[in-house]
Design a protein around this nucleic acid. Structure first.
Lengths: 230, 230
DNA sequence: ATCTCTTCAATACACTGTATCGCAACAGTA
DNA sequence: TACTGTTGCGATACAGTGTATTGAAGAGAT
């Protein structure tokens, strides 16, 4: 009974850990969106059976939570900030950029409380930047308000990107993109203000409009920090 | 061949229209969340086969679009506003209230461009309130910035509501709710600012914090309207 | 009365998340 | 060395999904 007669022992299962699982899931989502992430496909990418994953997560939602936290590592940065405003600005822009790299993040952002270590670290960094500049409640409100804006603006931006892509990779001209429908709606005369905006408005790129709105919100925060709350 | 020998003719199919379909879908979603909405269940509620729906919508996403627009009818209001600020405030609060009635809206808000007639009417109302108070680009930015905040804040609020519900209907005390995990994270000492906030922060109800952040953002808009843009 | 055309229901397919179950390899004991 | 308990894994299974395809049956027209 030589070696060749004996069958090879069954390959020991590939060692797994959450990091590898999340990386596979993120890769899948980057390629095909969130809907391309199925436990079967994630497992397949790791040469494992689907049920294997349940040792590491107990539900698909938890996998999404891990993915969100994973990306928060990209948002985090070592740099020191000149002031609170720069800190909030940089984190906001980094969040946006991370979402451009991982569009699916837009679907998850704000959808569930972010309780992972990286998300915590991001929140900590923002809070720390404001620490001592106002009472804790104002600081909290500031961070939450900015985050709310960022979440909403990013979602909107990605929604537009997708709509453009779906209507055939047209220019960032939504009049052209949603042309027929848009035109018909505006032609009813029921939306004069909207029609005026669509007609006379300037086309601004997504980054600029994100940045502009962000600065407005930061202005608002600045105003509240200036004079301590009543 | 008497009447009794002949079988009854097969019941003529229930007449259907989008309104009925959307109403059924909304009811389902109100009861069990978005994930409770399946084409089969919607159809069943209307005594129809699943495939029947494809005469009215061509994809499940379109059904969601219709649902979103349906709820926008609740956001719309006939009332006249004293000024732009009141108009934006009222629409924002009505959006929030609609989402409390239809939690699933939080999952959809901002996820896709809202192109339905009711959503258009809401946008029109906001734009009209600001018409003439600044150049069109500033007006647009104002509406989008406020909307972004509203979307983000609502998503966050609903996420918290659900988390509370999931962790056993506890009080709006997230320290208690996420107790063990939260405590352990903060105990690491890596998040001092966060720990301070959690420890010293005042518990504010969701509506108040929404309103506060909203007023900040409205302040920011006011500042931009005051002096025409450079 | 026959034929066409529309409308709907049934069937089918590929795929999903997850519960259950039984096997096979290891650790520890006799 | 033989046995046994435990654990981790794969296969199987189930109920459900969105949607393409097919086929029949009714309405309207000739």
């Amino acid at each position: 009974m030589t070696v060749w007669d004996r069958p090879e022992p069954p390959a020991r299962p590939v060692p797994l850990d959450r990091q590898r699982i999340v990386a596979a899931a993120v890769a899948l989502a980057d390629e095909g969106g969130l809907e391309a992430v199925s436990l079967r496909k994630v497992a397949a990418r790791l040469d494992a059976g689907p049920m294997r994953l349940y040792g590491y997560i107990s539900t698909k939602e938890e996998l999404f939570d891990l993915m969100v936290d994973e990306v928060h590592a990209e948002i985090l940065t070592e740099e020191r900030f000149g002031d609170w405003r720069e800190a909030l600005r940089v984190h906001s822009h980094r969040t946006r950029q991370a979402t451009r790299r991982h569009e699916w993040l837009a679907d998850l952002l704000g959808g569930r409380p972010a309780l992972g270590p990286n998300a915590f670290a991001v929140t900590e960094a923002k809070l720390a930047a404001l620490d001592g500049l106002a009472d804790v409640d104002t600081v909290m409100r500031a961070v939450e308000t900015v985050s709310a804006y960022v979440t909403g603006a990013i979602r909107r931006e990605i929604a537009d990107v997708r709509a453009e892509r779906a209507t055939g990779l047209s220019k960032p001209d939504w009049q052209r993109a949603f042309g027929p429908h848009m035109t018909r709606m505006l032609a009813t005369g029921r939306f004069p203000a909207l029609a005026k905006i669509v007609h006379d408005g300037t086309e601004v790129d997504a980054e600029t409009s994100f940045a502009t709105g962000l600065e407005w919100v930061l202005d608002a925060v600045a105003a509240k920090l200036a004079r301590p709350p009543a």
